[in-house]
Design a protein around this nucleic acid. Structure first.
Lengths: 154, 154
DNA sequence: CGCCCGACGTTACAACATATCATTTAACAT
DNA sequence: ATGTTAAATGATATGTTGTAACGTCGGGCG
């Protein structure tokens, strides 16, 4: 794997794991071996990873079966703390490249190769929030995803 | 439930079923008893209905087990022809109040009561499409949903 | 009639998610 | 060090959602 291409403020590899650890501990949660392993595996994916995918890989890595429910517990924790996002239209998860920094994420998922790219557009998601609030909704959490075909698969 | 509030151009009840039938036949598809039953059941819901919910109700209605499989097939057909929409964040389906008329729908789903409301905002979804296309995606299908708490549950 | 094709039935299974309770580990006071 | 408590994880079971594969039935058409 290449070493750097440090772009604007995104982490990757060990750097990313460190950032995740910091964000989680800053939130008063523990950074356990299990959590580290699950995060590490999740971070290797460039497409949304299902809890079962992760469970399998972590099981291999540890030489001991890790049950899906353990993975779900930790993924939920990650999502709550912005270390990861759930991609609703894929029933799967992605590591967040900028833990601790919170956005309403927009995901583009390629129906052909399954890869996902992530864009932030706060004005766009802000408008989604506004529209929901105008309709009387509160505590809103936008889910903005786009299914389509990526440039590589075109 | 109130009786009317005929707003701009939405169908309901028998009227809606008729519109659905027209739209489907216009697309060269058949309007069978099974399809009519499934659509009728789907249209009774004011919250996203799972394929299994529908299967159960249609089974009752017909006095004969209808397998989820059959329901999925027909729901897929409905979705393809704009008679219904899939709500990704709920793994469930909603009848479309204006069959034949195509929009990128925005759904607001209440986490408390589960009800869903539907809004159209073509400029908003248009911007989502544009953002995806700017990122090199084609044949895009926006998924814009908002989880939150509705006014009634507030 | 014989053929094809679309719709639906049947069965089986794969994939995703949660509930419940037991066990282990960490934190901390005694 | 040891007991107490709460958090984290393990184990098992089950519930929910979604597909695959193939069989049957009935209508349209040569």
């Amino acid at each position: 794997m290449a070493t750097h291409a440090h772009h604007h403020h995104e982490h990757q590899g060990h750097d990313l794991a460190d950032a995740a650890k910091s964000a989680l501990t800053a939130a008063g949660e523990q950074w356990t071996d299990m959590r580290a392993d699950i995060f590490a595996v999740l971070a290797t994916f460039d497409k949304p990873a299902s809890a079962y995918d992760i469970a399998d890989l972590v099981s291999q890595k540890r030489g001991k079966r890790v049950a899906p429910n353990s993975v779900y517990r930790i993924l939920d924790l990650f999502v709550s703390n912005n270390l990861a996002s759930r991609v609703e239209s894929a029933n799967a998860y992605l590591a967040n490249a900028h833990p601790g920094c919170l956005h309403d994420c927009i995901f583009l998922i390629c129906d052909s190769c399954g890869s996902a790219t992530h864009i932030d557009d706060d004005s766009l998601t802000g408008n989604v929030r506004k529209a929901a609030e105008a309709a009387g909704f509160s505590a809103v959490r936008p889910v903005v995803e786009v299914r389509g075909t990526c440039a590589d698969c075109d």
